[in-house]
Structures are given as C-alpha cells and as structure tokens.
Design a protein around this nucleic acid. Structure first.
Lengths: 205, 205, 205, 205
DNA sequence: GATTAATCGAGACGGTACGTCAAGTCTTGAT
DNA sequence: ATCAAGACTTGACGTACCGTCTCGATTAATC
C-alpha cells in the first residue's frame, strides 16, 4: 500500500514569485503596509498558495529576506588582521545603511513572533560571526594574534554597535570614521594592542 | 473678545488611566494582543479619547512605557571605576531580563514607526548613557582614569551588547558572568588597562 | 424663599439662529448628512444650547421645519367650489414638489420617532384640512353644495394622493393635469356631481 | 484561457440567513435599534458578507422586507365589484395595521435614501395596484362597470388614504367602518354609482 | 489511458481591530 | 442660569486584513 503519492506537485516558480513580490512590496510600502493579499495579487497567486508554504505573514517576510540576503559575508584576506577587520566592518556598515527598512521589517517581525528569533540570527548575525571568526583564526594561524582575548565577545560587539546605530540612532553617522573608532577604540585594545595602534604601525614585528 | 481658547480642558486623570491600562495589558497579553479597544475599555475611556491624544497604537505604547519607566538610572559610586561599571551593567542586565516583553513591545513599535525612534533612545539609551558618563567623569576627576579613551563609544558598547542578547539571543546567558566578560574583555582594555586587570588589582596606586 | 428665579435668561436670538442653520444645512446636505455639531457650528452656538431647547435631532428638525413653513394655507375664494378646490390643490402640489427634500426629512424624522407624529400633522395636514374645510363650508353656505357627502374623507383624500406621489412616485407627474384628474375623477363625483361635470358646466343653476 | 470567472461562489444560504435576521431584529428592536453588527451576529455572518451584498442598512432592510412580503395580493372574486373592493381593502387595512412597524421602517429607509423609492413601490403599491386592476377589469368584462371612470386614480386613492392613516394618524380608526366610508363615499361615486348605492342595491340588473 | 490526489487562481467566508463619526452629557470660565 | 468651546462616554459605522474555506480547473504520478 503506497503512501499518498499522487497529486500535483508544488510549483517551485510560485515560491520564487511570492518571495520576490514580498521584497518588492516591502520596498514600496514598508512592513506595516505589506499585506498577504497584495503579495498574492502581485505574484498572481492565491492566498491559499501562500499559506500552504508559510504559516504567517511574519514567517513569509523572514523567508523572503533570507532568500535575497546572501548569508555569506565576504571574508577579506589582506594578510593583516586590522585591515581585514576594517574592511569587513565597513562592508557591514554599508550593507546595514543600504537595507535600513528591510532590517526594520525583520526586527518588527521577530519582535512580533519570538519563534522567528532564529531567522534574525541567520540573517544578520551568523554570517558576520562566521566571517569574523575566520578573520581572527587566520590571524592566530599567522601568529599575528596571541591567544587570550575573548574573541567570541569581540565578534558580537562590533555588529551590535552597528545595528544599534542603524536602528535606533539614525541621525548618528554610520560611516568609515565610525568603523575606525570601533576598531581602534574598542577592538584593538581588547586584542592587546595599545589603543589606536593600528593607525601608526600596522604589524607587530 | 478672546479667540477660542475656551472649552472643557483635557482631563489629566484620563491620560494617566489610559497609560496605566496600556502597561497592564502589555504585561497581560503582549504587544500583538494589545488593542486600542481593550485599552479604552480597561481605562473606562472611549477610543476617541485615546485618538485625541496619541496618533497610533505605537505612539500610545511608547508614551505608556516612557511614563512608567524611570529614565533615571541609579549611578553607583563605590569610588572605583571598575566596580561602578560592574554594578551599573549588572543592574542593566537584570532590568533588561525582567522587562524582556516590554522591550520587545517598544522595539516592534519603533521598527513599525520610524518616527518613534527617539522614544527608544529616551527609554533605553539616554538614561544609561547619562549614568555611564557620570561614572566615567567621576573616575576622571579622581585621576583614576587618564584622558584619551573613546568614552562615548564605550558608553554605547555595553548596552548594545546586552540589548542584542536579550532581544536576539535569548538562549545565551545574560548574567553577572557575561557582564564581567564585557567589562574585563572589552571595556577595561579600551580604557588602557591590561585585559582582565580589574580582577587582580583594583586600584591603580 | 424664592424659587429658582435667578440666572441669565435664554437668548431668543440663539433659537432663531439654530433653526435657520438647520434649514440651511437640510437644504445643503440633506437629512442624513445633517449633524447637531454642524448645526451648532453654523449658528455659532454650542451643543448644550441645542439640547437645552430640543430633546433630539429629530425634534430639532421638526421645529425648524415648523418654523419656516407657514401652517396657514391660503384659502381661495372665487365663489365657485370647483375653482377653489382646483386652485388650492394646485398650490399644494407646487408646494410639495418644491419642498420634496424637506418633506422627506420630516417623514424620516417621524418614522424614527413616533412621538413626533403630531408634528407631521401640524406641518402638512392640519393647514390643508382647515383650508379645505373652509372651502367646503363656504360652498355649503352658498348653497352650492348639498349636505350629505363625507367631507372629512374628501378633505384627506386629495392631500394623501399628492403626498404619495411626491414621496413614492417621483417619476409620475404631479402637475395641474393630475390635480384636475383628482378633482374631476374623484372629488366632484363624491360631491354628487356627474363625473367631470366641472369641466363643462361650472355651477348648478 | 478563461477570464476571471472563478472564485468561491456566494453562498445563497448566507443571504437568506441575513435577510431573516433583519426581519427578526426589525420586529424585536425596530428600525432605529437595528444595527448591521447585530444582523451579522444573528446570522452567524460577518459584516463584510453583509456589505458585499447590500450597500447600506437601508438597502438591506428593503431587501429583507421584499423577501418576506409576498407581493401578490389575493384578488377576491365574489362576482360583485363592490364586494370585491370591500374585501380587498379590508384585507389591506388589516395588513397595514399588523405591520405598522415594518412599514415605518421602510418609510424611514426610503425617506433616507431616495434611490430606494422603487422598493417601496414594489412592496406596497405594485401588488395592490395589480390586484385592484384585476378587480376592476373583471367588473368591466362582466359589464358591471361602464368604461369612463379614471380607474388608475381610484386604484391609487384608497391605498394612499389607508397608508396615511396608519403612518400619520395612528389615533384615527383604521377599521372596516373606515373602509366602508372610503368605498361608499369616494370610490363608488367615482364609478358613477350614486353615493352609498352599494349598501342598498348590490347589482345593476 | 483512466484514476487519483494534491496543486493552482479566484474569491467568499467568519472574525476581529481599525480609525472615524455622531449623539447626547458634562465641565470650564465668562457673561 | 445662560453662553461658546470642546472634552467626554457610548456605540455604530464601513473598511481592511487575517487565515480558512470552497469552487472548478490543472497537472503529474500511479494504476
């Protein structure tokens, strides 16, 4: 006796069309203005098709953002830890500024549905964490960095500061200068370098 | 002949009743479950009275939280910077854990209505910033701390980390040990102290 | 000890201003569109002043219509019953057509508040009844009309037909020809005249 | 490929349930007391379902009354015109008295929304008109009635008088005696019969 | 090829909250 | 006690959205 095997299979193209429609509408009308009806209409789909795939509006939004956002953060490899950090964080800062409204959308979605917290982590934290870990590990391998510093803490600290700025201090600058302040004033000291060392001498001889 | 300044004045007691009702309901049913109707009913008020005062559910919630949350963070004064920081952050961490749902509410409100960003700052950041600034300034006056470190950055860094944990990493601990990691692994080094110095020697002679 | 005699006396001008405002608004926005707030605003009065005088919106409307509508219907006196009836009814027909929307207003008001039924009678029926009675009585005195016909019934019949047309058959004509049909086809026969007699011979010799 | 004719079809049972609920509530709480919310609740429907079908409370009420009121008025056939008229009008008078509140409801609805005037005609006038026309035509066929009288006018006259009594003269009797006055004092004379002839001699030989 | 069963677009459905509006009452300070 | 102004409670309004459901029409895999 076969298990329920018959039936028309799901159309993968519908999925893609729906997720694209979410992104479009999110950029057009914002999180609050987005409705499932509008998404379905835009994608020429029916609401049933949406709910067959995602359990709620918030889950749909998270899925759409996960779909367009590359979770892979490019890991720079200049051979110098300080330069790698600077490049990585500048890249992050620019990405955050560019996607301010999308970030607000997912923050609202997560605040609304705690079960989606993991999506936030996957979208914004996991990638940066992995990239940062790679940068630090390579520095350790090179001997540029001595074991000891609380690397896990440092990995979280910079994104937390950037995210706070983009979400709650939109009037404060989020530019290369700010990234430099973070690197020089916070991270390098924590790594054992004298404050601001990175500006004068690049590599410990 | 005077221009129309007459009319029955707004009843401040209604305002207070409404804000209290918001807080009660927020604790009972959460941000998503809160409705203007329920708030009005609880406060024995009418919806018109609500809308006469606040333009949206989100603004109402911000007002209510601003009303109950003392913006004054107690500033410890043990005579030692490290101890002051530790006490202050432990207090913050506990407050954040205790009010997780209220924080989620305001985060959702702000993410939904960017114009309310300032409320968030007033609620969670301004008070802590002022308190931290007081702590650092006293240390400077005592000569315990030399000028130079990027104090403004440090002031923001710790709350950002705590807030990130409470909102997006609910499974990670947010306890005294974590606060110690932040102080020892991030702040003290940035202040020019060797990493973890605060644990061995307390005061610079 | 004196009974409550003190206090500022009511300003009769306010009353007139309010009633005028009702009529103006009734003509501008119709019965459904009329609000007490708008009436008060238009009359530079406060709502309290309205409710001090009339117990409800419907009563106010009736009062306003009673105020502008002369309850005295001009009684023609040509010396001939048929001519008097014809003139009187033509006048009625024109008045009804002209005030179609005001009539609809009071009909709605009365249908809503049965206690105002009397107002309707005073507005539309009493005056016409008195006028018609005068016409018939003069004819009796002149000997033009023999006792016998059910005059009270005839008095009501013509207005009922006209009112029905204006309210419920707005596409049917309500003109002199219709009035003639009513007089010739209904009233004259009931008075004992052969049908349509009034058109050939006017007075019974 | 067919154009959008798909979609879930409207449920006729919902329509019936809503119309029944209107009638029930109309009898329970009257026209003013009736709310769309209550109708929807009673019919286990949602307000959207109501508004999908009827544009206003007034239209809904008209639809409901049209649904329950048989537009077919029984046409008596005694073989005698006078008797037929008497029976028909007595039946009308009783029906009007019995449904006073429903009639007030539709009068208010029509006075409020002129576009519904046709409903009134269909509800109260068309059926009676058809019945009366049948009675008169049969009398003509029988030779009981000679051509000449303004039948269309007579058809309207009696209902207009009855309706006026029930709506605006609730204290005046609306009984068989009044019907007899109308028949004897108004209709028979207009048909060419001497006043009150119907009471003495029944059939013209 | 016929059967089967899940899919699809469309849109009606119950439910619920929204934000607005009007009615009628009450409060203030001034006349 | 009256007045204008306008806040107040009450409660219906009509709209909008959610998530579910029904309909008839596909559309593959299974028989």
């Amino acid at each position: 006796m076969s298990k329920g095997a018959g039936g028309r299979p799901r159309d993968a193209a519908r999925e893609e069309a729906l997720l694209s429609a979410v992104i479009e509408l999110l950029d057009e009308v914002g999180y609050e203005g987005l409705t499932i009806d509008a998404v379905a209409r835009r994608a020429q789909a029916s609401k049933a098709t949406v709910y067959r795939r995602w359990p709620s509006k918030e889950a749909l939004i998270c899925a759409a953002l996960l779909n367009v956002t590359s979770s892979v953060v490019p890991v720079p490899d200049t051979g110098e830890l300080v330069e790698d950090l600077r490049l990585m964080l500048r890249h992050s800062a620019r990405a955050l500024k560019r996607n301010r409204s999308r970030i607000a959308a997912i923050v609202a979605a997560v605040a609304t549905r705690p079960e989606l917290t993991e999506s936030f982590d996957r979208l914004f934290l996991a990638g940066r964490r992995a990239a940062a870990r790679g940068v630090y590990e390579r520095a350790l391998e090179r001997g540029e960095l001595a074991p000891g510093p609380d690397i896990d803490l440092l990995i979280d600290a910079a994104p937390a500061l950037l995210l706070q700025r983009v979400l709650y201090q939109p009037d404060e600058p989020l530019d290369d200068a700010f990234v430099d302040r973070v690197v020089n004033g916070l991270i390098l000291p924590a790594l054992g370098e004298p404050r601001g060392a990175g500006q004068q001498r690049r590599k410990t001889p």
